[in-house]
Amino acid sequence: MTKFLLPLLFLLPSGAYAIDKKFDLNAVTLEILREFPPALSPAVAVPRRADPQPEEKYFNAYILKAIDYLYKNYGLLGYDINSILTHDITYNTSGIVPARRAPLTMCVAAQMEIILTAYEIYAGETGDFSVYYYLPKRSFEGLSVTDLKGHIWVNPKFNANGTADALINFGMGEREPFENLRPGDFVNINRANRTGHAVTFIGYINKTGKILPRYDAGAVVGFKYFSSQGRLAAGEGGLDYRYAVFSKFGCPEMPYKRDCEVIYSADQRMLNTGTMLAPRFWTHTMPQASSETEGETTELNHGFFNGLTTDD
């Protein structure tokens, strides 16, 4: 076998020896073999792990499933600024996150309800209950700097100008500019009349309200969203959709109720945008109380979040 393999050495790049000397297999010794330099090995490319696809890295699919579920089961049951959640929500084995004055609710509470409902759907589908161990239940009940709710409710002192900021502050989210949003991302808007709203992004729209597959600077006039807004009476307010239109485009007719005079801005304090990461990408970054935020609690700005949109 050795004599069969040895001639192959002289066919390799280092086998130039065979050109200069007459090859005699019986004359090959260890000393002769040591004269050969090591054979060159071709470079082997080590494949990089592919970057995760959006459906793997982000929680959007479950956010959208939560919206479908909530609209079907709890849609349009009434809006009230002092109400939180359309129903009690079980937080795994830790008890319930209680509703206040259910089934009425308002916009920032709607975003929290969407997230909690997405937790339920995700855990039920995947069997992964780790979402419930990342933050304690009290984080969805308290309003301090160490509570997620205190950030979703908006507090500039916490560097929280919207749901996107809240998720980023707790290592659960990622910044996305308005032009890169995907259905299921979060947006907080400001209007020209000095009011605002917390919503979930559904899609870009053109001047007739048609949903566009992606951002197009020449066609986009705003976006469709889901939140809680409108009037107190059932059927006139609560969890529902709207068509937000940026102020420069006026208030064109839309297929459904409009929310006009929305301010477009790259300033995240005016148009707060971002996405929620899938649980395995949460970073365990947590806000800590400082001398400025110690003992501080968020007070909801009732005048700012008044719930009224153009066609209410």
Rank of each mutant, 00 (worst) to 15 (best):
P252G: 12
E236Q: 14
G218A: 04
S247T: 12
Y243M: 13
E253Y: 05
G250P: 08
P252D: 08
G230C: 12
Y243W: 09
S228P: 08
D240T: 01
F249P: 03
R214Y: 10
M254C: 08
G222M: 07
Q229C: 13
L239T: 01
P252H: 11
V220S: 06
V245A: 03
P252Q: 11
K248A: 07
G238F: 11
V220A: 08
D216N: 14
R214D: 14
F226V: 01
M254A: 07
S227P: 06
G222R: 04
R231S: 11
P252T: 14
G238D: 08
A244L: 08
G222C: 13
F226C: 00
S228Q: 07
S227I: 10
G218E: 04
G230W: 05
P252I: 15
G250T: 13
S228M: 08
V245K: 01
P252V: 14
A234K: 15
K224D: 01
A219P: 03
G237R: 10
E253F: 03
A219L: 12
R214W: 07
A244Q: 09
G230L: 08
E236C: 01
A233S: 13
L239Y: 03
E253K: 14
A244G: 14
F249A: 04
F226N: 00
E253W: 03
V221M: 03
E253V: 11
D240E: 02
R231L: 15
C251Q: 03
A244K: 12
A217M: 04
A219R: 14
E236V: 00
A244Y: 09
F249I: 08
Y215H: 13
Y225N: 11
K248G: 02
V220E: 07
R242S: 15
F226K: 00
K224E: 13
S247Y: 05
L232K: 04
S227L: 10
L232H: 09
Y243R: 04
A219E: 15
Q229I: 13
R242N: 12
G230T: 12
L239H: 02
G237W: 11
V245C: 03
G250Q: 09
R231M: 12
F246E: 01
